[in-house]
């Protein structure tokens, strides 16, 4: 029996009259690599904010790492890690300072931070880079370090946003191996991405469109089901609204009408406007 670490039942999130998440239901298991895909404005960011305790659902039950997202968001935050491609590490701090900073933020004991920092540097083969500024490290290294920092406090779940976009193929492989290893240790990996190549590496993927989850299965099953050669093909097929008769002319009508109903979003841009946020 697999342990459930994320359980989402009938999740609805509304912003005024706009429904960003329309009755989502899914479970994510311990040690699983779960891909969370969707087009711009499909409602991914909104759902992600709720899962990480940053926003409260309008209705429905969301349990993350054993805590209710509506009632105990602070406890959720302590039990998750987060890494996004653009920002995770402070460029003007050294490698060592960054690691120790995150250990401190998550309330780890000083002695244990020190010891584990050295262990981590050793494991990543980063010894000589320990006192270098993050800004001076190559991209691939930053990425690996950002991931290690995100799981430094041994969270139950780590959220990754486009973790390997733009890195070279070798680094990318090394990165996925790190993720596999982390998942083997029982940490659940929750990946959101635009990049369908990344989705292929996940154990299971869900695809969101128009605020709903329209597909959820292993990449292999989905490819079989849609008779497609890649997740990208699957995605393109189902993320397209059903009505367009001709391939190129009609497609965006759906997406755009939807965009049309978007409420004007302010600075915080409540997720519904993933497009707007860019």
């Amino acid at each position: 029996m697999k342990n459930t670490v994320i359980s989402v039942k009938n999740l609805v999130k509304k912003f005024g009259s706009f429904t960003a998440n329309d009755n989502l239901n899914f479970e994510v298991y311990e040690g699983e690599i779960f891909g969370f895909l969707g087009a711009n404005g499909a409602g991914k960011t909104t759902a992600l904010r709720i899962l990480s305790g940053l926003s409260s659902p309008t209705s429905g039950e969301v349990i993350v790492a054993g805590f209710n997202a509506k009632k105990e968001p602070e406890k959720i935050k302590k039990n998750i890690g987060y890494m996004c491609q653009k920002f995770s590490l402070y460029n003007d701090l050294t490698t060592r300072e960054n690691i120790m900073l995150y250990g401190g933020i998550y309330g780890m004991r000083k002695a244990s931070i020190k010891e584990r920092t050295e262990d981590l540097l050793e494991k990543l083969n980063f010894r000589e880079y320990g006192d270098r500024m993050i800004a001076d490290l190559p991209l691939g290294m930053k990425q690996k370090l950002a991931f290690s920092v995100a799981v430094f406090h041994e969270p139950k779940i780590v959220f990754l946003d486009e973790p390997t976009g733009g890195v070279d193929p070798i680094t990318r492989r090394q990165f996925w191996e790190m993720i596999y290893e982390t998942a083997d240790r029982g940490i659940t990996i929750f990946v959101t991405t635009h990049y369908m190549d990344e989705a292929e590496y996940c154990d299971r993927i869900s695809i969101m469109s128009e605020g709903r989850i329209v597909a959820l299965n292993t990449p292999e099953e989905l490819k079989k089901q849609y008779d497609a050669g890649s997740v990208e093909e699957v995605f393109v097929r189902i993320a397209r609204p059903p009505f367009p008769p001709s391939r190129s002319a009609g497609f965006h009508a759906g997406g755009q009408n939807r965009a049309e109903t978007k409420p004007p979003s302010g600075g915080w841009g409540p997720g519904i406007g993933e497009g707007v946020l860019e």
Binding site: A249, H252, A259, G275
Partner: peptide
């Protein structure tokens, strides 16, 4: 025309409010 026709219905909209694909 092939490309612009996709976004022409929104020609009065501010570019900052377009989705990534439309931009």
């Amino acid at each position: 025309s092939d490309i612009y026709s996709h976004i022409e219905p929104f020609r009065k909209r501010i570019a900052g409010k377009l989705s990534g694909g439309m931009k």
